[in-house]
């Protein structure tokens, strides 16, 4: 388990999610692919915080404090933020899906083309 392999894993999950968004017409499938992309990003953030030190710790003359040590966990904190944003986003998106289904009894993006003119 090295930084390289983790980055490849995260890139793979991200790109598969992107493919899902671009190639599917169902809105729920799109939401699921967005969640996949989020997961790829979190993997990258956490592996960076585990395998690469922050700039504060690279400075050898720096006095070790809990502040400097906590900066090593910025990736984890970003992960927590991403997860909470993803929860809010999916709740909102699914509420929109319900409304769309009530309006047109379909959740296919192809059916929502009023703005096409």
């Amino acid at each position: 388990m090295t930084l390289d392999s983790l980055l490849i894993l995260s890139a793979a999950v991200f790109c598969i999610g992107l493919y899902g968004i671009l190639s599917k017409t169902n809105i729920v499938s799109t939401i699921m692919s967005i969640e996949l992309m989020f997961n790829g990003i979190i993997i990258a953030a956490v592996s960076f915080s585990r395998f690469t030190p922050s700039a504060l710790l690279m400075n050898n003359s720096f006095d070790v404090s809990s502040f400097a040590l906590n900066t090593a966990l910025s990736g984890h904190v970003f992960g927590v933020f991403i997860i909470s944003i993803a929860a809010a986003e999916s709740a909102l998106a699914l509420a929109l899906v319900f409304v769309m289904f009530n309006k047109k009894s379909s959740v296919d993006i192809v059916d929502f083309n009023e703005l096409k003119g």
Partner: peptide, 10 residues
């Protein structure tokens, strides 16, 4: 550490 950085840095 996550807790302490959530209420200080972030």
């Amino acid at each position: 550490s996550i807790g302490s950085s959530l209420i200080s840095n972030f």
